[in-house]
C-alpha cells in the first residue's frame, strides 16, 4: 500500500483517529494531573469548589506564597522517611533481577537446546506456576517462614521473588535462545569446548538483547509487587509499594494526603523513565509470546 492511500481521509479514519486521541488522553491525563497536583497543597489538589484551583494553585499561593510547593515531597521523603523503603526497594529489586537472570539464563538455555520431551513438560509446569496468584503462594509461605525464623528478612523476600519470577523468565529466555542458531554453540563444541564453555564463550556475548528485555520484566515484577512484599517483610525492611499502602491509612488520618501524593509520584517517575529508554525492548518482550506463538 502506498503511504498516500493510507493517509486518505475517510470517515472511518476520522473515527479511529478520534478514538486514539481519546485513548491517549485517558492514558496520560491521570499521570499529568497527579504530577502537577503533587506540587500543590491539599485544598487545591482536592478542590471541591473548582477544579481549576489545582491548575492555578490559588490556595497554594495563599498558604505558601508561591504557586508551587515541595511540602508534599519534604513530608514524604524526610518527615515520613520514605527514603528508607526506597532504599529497601532498590536492594530487593537489584538482587532479584540479578539472581533471576543468572539462573534463568542457564535454565532457559538448557530448555532451548535440550530438544527432549521432558524439557517441554518443564515449560508446561512453568506455565501452570506462572498462573498461580501470588497471594495463594504467600499463604503457603507464612507458617513455615515463621517457624524457621526467616520471616521479615530481605533475603527471604528476594529468593521468593526470584522463584515467582522464574516461570516467566524461563519462557522468555527459552524462546529467545531458540532464535540463536544452534550451529554457533555446536561448532564450538566440535572444536572441543564443553557445553558450559560453549555457553560461556559463544552464547553469552550474543545474548544481551534478550537478557535485557527479560531483565526489564523481572524489574517490573519486583518493583510492582505488593502481595509478596507487604506480607513477607517486617516494618523496618518494608519496601516502597507496601509503604505507600501504609501511607494511605496513616497520613489520611493526619490530613497529610499530599505526602501520599508525593510518594505516589516518586514511585511513578522511575517507571516513566524506564518506558522512555526501553520502549522497544518492552514492546518486543510483550509480543514474543503472542506473535511468534
Amino acid at each position: 500500500m502506498t503511504p498516500k492511500a493510507k493517509l486518505r481521509i475517510t470517515p472511518l479514519f476520522v473515527i479511529s483517529a478520534m478514538l486514539v486521541a481519546l485513548w491517549l488522553f485517558l492514558a496520560s491525563f491521570p499521570f499529568l494531573w497527579t504530577l502537577w497536583g503533587s506540587f500543590k497543597v491539599q485544598a487545591d489538589f482536592f478542590s471541591k469548589a473548582d477544579w481549576r484551583n489545582a491548575l492555578s494553585g490559588v490556595n497554594t499561593i495563599a498558604q505558601t506564597g508561591s504557586a508551587y510547593t515541595g511540602t508534599g515531597y519534604f513530608g514524604a521523603w524526610i518527615q515520613e522517611e520514605f527514603w528508607k523503603p526506597v532504599t529497601n526497594s532498590s536492594i530487593v529489586i537489584f538482587f532479584t533481577v540479578i539472581i533471576s537472570l543468572t539462573i534463568g539464563t542457564l535454565g532457559g538455555y538448557a530448555l532451548a537446546r535440550s530438544g527432549r520431551r521432558y524439557a517441554f513438560w518443564i515449560l508446561m509446569a512453568a506455565l501452570v506456576f506462572r498462573a498461580m496468584p501470588h497471594i495463594t503462594l504467600v499463604s503457603g509461605y507464612l507458617l513455615p517462614f515463621f517457624e524457621w525464623n526467616i520471616w521479615g528478612l530481605m533475603p527471604t523476600t528476594i529468593i521468593v521473588l526470584v522463584a515467582i519470577n522464574q516461570p516467566f523468565t524461563l519462557w522468555m529466555l527459552h524462546s529467545f535462545f531458540l532464535n540463536i542458531p544452534k550451529d554457533m554453540d555446536e561448532s564450538a563444541m566440535v572444536d572441543g569446548c564443553t557445553r558450559f564453555q560453549a555457553f560461556w564463550h559463544v552464547i553469552i556475548p550474543v545474548m544481551w538483547p534478550g537478557v535485557i528485555t527479560t531483565g526489564l520484566f523481572s524489574f517490573l515484577l519486583a518493583y510492582n509487587d505488593f502481595a509478596v512484599t507487604s506480607m513477607l517483610l517486617s516494618q523496618e525492611n518494608e519496601t516502597m509499594i507496601p509503604a505507600i499502602a501504609g501511607f494511605l491509612g496513616t497520613v489520611q488520618v493526619e490530613g497529610n494526603v499530599m505526602f501520599a501524593v508525593a510518594a505516589v509520584v516518586s514511585a511513578t517517575v522511575p517507571l516513566l523513565f524506564l518506558v522512555m529508554f526501553f520502549q522497544k525492548q518492552i514492546v518486543s518482550g510483550l509480543t514474543t509470546g503472542a506473535v511468534k506463538g
Binding site: T102, I103, G104, L106, G107, Y109, A110, L111, S114, R116, A119, I122, A125, A126, F129, M132, T136, L137, S139, G140, Y141, L143, P144, I159, V160, V162, A163, I164, Q166, P167, T169, L170, R195, F196
Partner: peptide, 24 residues
C-alpha cells in the same frame, strides 16, 4: 548437562512454588 543447567531454576520453583501449594 541439562540437569546441571536447569538445577538452580528448578530448585527455586519446586521449593517456593510447588511446595507452598502443598503447604497451603
Amino acid at each position: 548437562t541439562f540437569f546441571w543447567f536447569i538445577l538452580p531454576a528448578m530448585t527455586a520453583m519446586i521449593l517456593l512454588i510447588a511446595l507452598p501449594i502443598v503447604s497451603v
